[in-house]
Design a protein around this nucleic acid. Structure first.
Lengths: 222, 222
DNA sequence: TATTGTGCTATGGTATTCCGTAAGGAATAC
DNA sequence: GTATTCCTTACGGAATACCATAGCACAATA
């Protein structure tokens, strides 16, 4: 079983709750951090005294407050962690359900588990820990299903993604075409932009461009 | 001090955390419920055996899952509670920061405290309880400030919200008008729908309806 | 009663989006 | 070398959205 676990989570109450869950697993050393920057400091300090943490459980979103922050998100924290302690096991514990974001976390940072916050989260957290101990990847049931039919997402290339972002930012078709022309991107004519949007609507089964934007946001493409 | 407290909150870990916080206040009887329907049942049962709860701490949003639900939100629960135990003290404990929603909760249901989930939530929860004991209203500091200049917010009513939802669901202007006609809602003509959308675009500073939807999602209106 | 204001609706013109068609060019296949 | 396919672009008509204006009903006010 893991000996030293760090929890990075801004919500005070959740920290207490996760601690209690971990207590049930007889983890001797549980440390919490309410800011990503603090979490990184604690990881570094533990490394220096040669008592590194074995597991990081981190949220993705951390509220801003009066304090100045360098790392503002769980993703930034994970990225930083990978440079100082690449083999640290990581469980992401978040409400995030946009499958695109989750998939990119898994692909980019090779995280060891994704647990979606919800009714059965304590049980899932325990399952995740047991699964990681066997060097396997764990994913919440609800997320697992979504991950299976995520393939269609890769069909949207970076230009499509940019296009969706520009749509969400309030640019009209012609303005988008001009933007693409300025940047010298391919398929920059108004006609092509229209075709792209149409292709995306078919792909995402959207009736209107408003819905297209909504779906893109929901899937974490924006 | 309160003797019997009921916590309605779907997130398992938060339940444990709140329990721990309440333990620090030496509350003898703490009960939790992960569904609004269960919460109401427990309140009723406690009333019947003449050992009513003195305080309800409830979240606002409860995730849907396989289970059939009658009460689907904290607001619905509060409404139901008011009919069976009107003088029960209520603390709303939520991430909700849309000041319009919060103000309407305070105005409509006369809740006793609103604690915003965040870094200092445990401390605020304790403060809220102590304040309520003195028969005063408590509100998180961050919310208090917002409440002062709330006048401009209530401009988006429930119909505007529905309209935005329908837009995000892919309905065209005319379809939305027809929907409003079916439901016998006010301002149901195509012209009025257009005017509403335009008003919202001005209000949210959106250039296109695509951006309007994106902003609405971003602000949690959908 | 007359007046003003407000909310809803209808109408029409303009702009934009939507969608099908087709032409041209580049890469690939035959 | 020619045919085929794919991608890009242009164009035009239809549908929809956008926007300004005006009429109407109703309520509040003088």
């Amino acid at each position: 079983m893991f000996q030293n676990i760090l929890i990075a989570e801004d919500q005070n109450t959740i920290n207490k709750g996760v601690e209690r869950t971990l207590n049930e697993l007889d983890i001797p050393n549980i440390v919490t951090a309410q800011y990503c920057d603090d979490a990184l400091l604690k990881l570094k300090a533990a490394l220096q005294v040669n008592q590194p943490f074995n597991l990081l459980i981190t949220d993705l979103s951390f509220k801003a407050d009066h304090r100045e922050r360098t790392l503002t998100s769980g993703e930034a924290l994970i990225k930083a962690v990978k440079t100082i302690q690449p083999n640290l096991k990581i469980i992401v514990f978040s409400v995030e359900h946009r499958i695109g974001k989750i998939k990119s976390l898994i692909d980019t940072y090779d995280i060891n588990a994704y647990v979606e916050k919800g009714r059965e989260e304590s049980i899932e957290l325990k399952k995740a820990i047991h699964t990681i101990l066997k060097d396997e990847m764990y994913c919440s049931h609800s997320i697992e299903q979504l991950l299976r039919n995520v393939d269609d997402i890769s069909q949207t290339d970076q230009y499509d993604e940019l296009l969706l972002q520009l749509l969400a930012k309030g640019l009209k078709r012609e303005q988008i075409a001009n933007y693409f022309k300025e940047k010298d991107y391919p398929a920059r004519s108004l006609s092509s932009i229209e075709k792209r949007i149409n292709k995306l609507k078919v792909l995402f089964d959207a009736h209107t461009s408003e819905q297209l934007v909504a779906i893109a946001i929901d899937r974490g493409l924006i």
